[in-house]
């Protein structure tokens, strides 16, 4: 039995080794060395330059906005879905997930065409602005917010909600004291799944920002491609990874302390 289990774990150990540990090591190596292969912290410190810091700040701001908008859209939707009939429920969820089956680049390109100067929504004049980038992020990542929140909400036992009404709570209280706290796990995974890809994206900002909205993802991409400076690209990637870890830790903390009064 035990040797069987060990055998089963071989592919995963291989995956972790080749897919996580080795690449991480390579990035860390490049990030902490210069072109001659000598140890340096210069690549890391590069984040402090005005351009890079600005890009990182912009990334944090836009992904925060996109995550917030997704949350505001997804939560009420989850509430509506929770109370609808079973068949209708599945169909609605299906409708929201449907765009996810289309290629991500294609979806973003569609917005590019729509928002272009001569596009149907060209009149809005938001192409190549941060607004367009946020719109793209929300459109691309909304399903990742809807699904976990919906799952958390349908899992809440209706008798718990009825019990709250029974004890004298009005709808507002039921919502903020019972439903929201009990769906925190879903909210947290939704935030994670929207915030992280938004923070690291370069495709959306490339297509909808038109080179005018520079996110940290774009800068890293350029270091690897245009400038062929792998060391700097890796160094910045390491910094971004640290930011993601910090954000996740903050959200986790929020999760644990926030029970009962998250909003």
């Amino acid at each position: 039995m035990n040797s069987m289990k060990k055998l089963f774990s071989v592919p995963f150990i291989c995956f972790i080794l080749c897919g996580t540990i080795v690449p991480m090591g390579v990035i860390a190596y490049y990030g902490l060395t210069d072109r001659e292969g000598l140890f340096t912290l210069k690549n890391i410190m590069e984040i402090a330059t005005v351009d890079h810091a600005k890009a990182l700040g912009m990334s944090l701001l836009l992904s925060f906005l996109a995550t917030t908008i997704c949350l505001i859209l997804a939560f009420p939707l989850g509430l509506i879905l929770k109370d609808s009939k079973l068949g209708k429920k599945g169909f609605m969820v299906f409708l929201f997930i449907l765009p996810m089956w289309m290629n991500f680049v294609l979806r973003t390109m569609a917005w590019q065409v729509l928002l272009e100067k001569n596009g149907i929504l060209g009149g809005l004049g938001i192409i190549n602005t941060p607004t367009a980038v946020v719109l793209g992020m929300v459109y691309d990542y909304l399903p990742f917010m809807v699904l976990p929140i919906y799952n958390a909400l349908v899992k809440i036992d209706n008798s718990v909600i009825e019990a709250a009404y029974d004890l004298g709570a009005d709808y507002k209280r039921v919502l903020f004291k019972i439903i929201v706290p009990l769906s925190v796990p879903g909210i947290v995974s939704g935030i994670t799944m929207v915030f992280v890809p938004s923070l690291t994206t370069f495709a959306i900002s490339n297509m909808l920002g038109g080179g005018k909205v520079n996110l940290i993802g774009n800068i890293i991409e350029q270091e690897f491609t245009a400038s062929a400076n792998w060391n700097l690209g890796s160094g910045l990637s390491l910094v971004m990874m640290i930011f993601i870890v910090i954000s996740m830790a903050l959200i986790e903390k929020f999760d644990r302390n926030g029970e009962g009064n998250m909003i």
Binding site: D157, S159, V160, D166, G168
Partner: peptide, 20 residues
């Protein structure tokens, strides 16, 4: 509505609030 009644219920599945 239930919250306005001088009646309280003990539910079959207890329905305690799991986060409190």
């Amino acid at each position: 509505s239930p919250n306005k009644r001088q009646i309280n219920t003990v539910f079959q599945k207890y329905a305690l609030f799991p986060h409190m």
